[in-house]
Amino acid sequence: MKPARFDYQRAESAAEACEALAELGGDARVLAGGQSLVPMLNMRLAQPRLLVDISRIEALQKIERSGGRLLVGAGARQAALLSHDGLAEAAPLLAAALPWVGHAQTRARGTVCGSLAHADPSAELPTCLLALQGAVRLRSSRRHRELPAEAFLAGLMSTAREDDELVEAAAFPLRRAGEGQAFREFGRRHGDFAIVGAAAVVSAQRIRLAVGGVADRPMARDWPALEGSALDDALNAFAWELGARDDLHASARLRRDLVRALGREAIEEARRCRA
C-alpha cells in the first residue's frame, strides 16, 4: 500500500514545528526517524494532513548530561546514543538494551524519542525509561512541561502528549553509586519486538523491575532487597498482575514464565554489576 496524500513541511526549529502542530493539532504528525511512522503511513493506519519533519533541527539532535540525567533530543538517533561516549558506565541499562532495538539499519535512522512517542508496549526504550524513572519533555507554543515515564506512557501505543505538543527530549537518570542495572529480553528473532523484556535497577536497599511486552504498556514494581523464595513470590505475583493473554506470538503462560525467569536473571545480573 501507499500512504494517503499529505503535505510536507521541513521545520527549521522546534518553535516552527510547534507552530505547525498548534495550527493543525491531531491532523499533523511529526517525522524524526520514520522507522515507526512510515510503515503506519504506508498501511494507512496514520493519515495526517501534514507531516512535520524535525530530522534536520540540530538543536534536537543533542545528547548531553545535565543534573544527573542524560538528555536525549527528539532528533537523536538510537545509533548515536549507543555510541555515546561513556554510555556503558553512565547508563548501563541503555547500553545493554539498545542492541536489542531493531537492527543496525533501523537504529541508524530511528530516534530514541520516536520510540517513546510510538509507545509500543513491547519496545525496549519505554521499558528502560520506566525502570530508570525517567521523564519526557514536551513543548508547545503554549508551554513547556515534563512528564515522568509513568504518566507519559498512557496505554497501548498511547501517550499523554497533547495534539499540539512536540516531544522535545527524553531524560534518563544516570547510574548512581552502588547501583546495578541489567536488561533481558526474549523474542522470536533478535531485532523483533520483545515477547517479554525485563529491565532491572538494583541498589543495596531496593529492587525496581520494569517489564514490557505483556500488558498494554510497560509496568514496573519496587521491592525491598528480596532474596530467595521471597523474590520468587514477588515475581510470581507481578507476572499474574500483568494480565497476560494468549495471542499468535505466545501464550499467557509462556509470558508469565518469562516474567519470572527474565526478571530474576535481570535482577541477579544487576546485583553483580553494582559498583
Rank of each mutant, 00 (worst) to 15 (best):
W223P: 08
V38Y: 03
A170C: 04
L50V: 10
A182H: 05
A252Y: 07
E64G: 10
R10D: 00
Q35E: 14
D222Y: 01
D85K: 15
A119K: 09
I195M: 10
R56Q: 14
R255H: 09
K62F: 02
H118W: 13
L132M: 12
N236L: 14
R260G: 01
L87M: 07
G102H: 09
W223H: 07
S203K: 07
F152D: 03
G243C: 07
G114S: 07
R217L: 12
A4F: 10
A239F: 11
D216F: 08
R107Y: 08
L24M: 09
L82T: 06
P92D: 10
R77Q: 15
L21F: 03
A266N: 00
E265H: 14
P173L: 01
M43H: 15
P218R: 08
R107V: 00
V72M: 02
R253D: 14
R69W: 06
E185Y: 06
L174E: 12
A270K: 08
L24D: 09
D85A: 15
G25T: 05
R137T: 12
A160F: 05
L248H: 15
F183D: 08
C128E: 00
P148G: 13
R49T: 05
I207P: 12
A135V: 02
G155E: 07
L24E: 12
S13L: 02
R56Y: 03
G102C: 11
A160D: 14
E268G: 06
R77S: 11
N236S: 14
R145Q: 09
H103C: 04
R217V: 07
C113V: 14
R44S: 00
G68Q: 06
A96E: 13
R44E: 00
V196P: 06
R142H: 11
A22P: 00
G110L: 01
R69E: 14
R5W: 10
D53M: 01
L166G: 03
H84P: 04
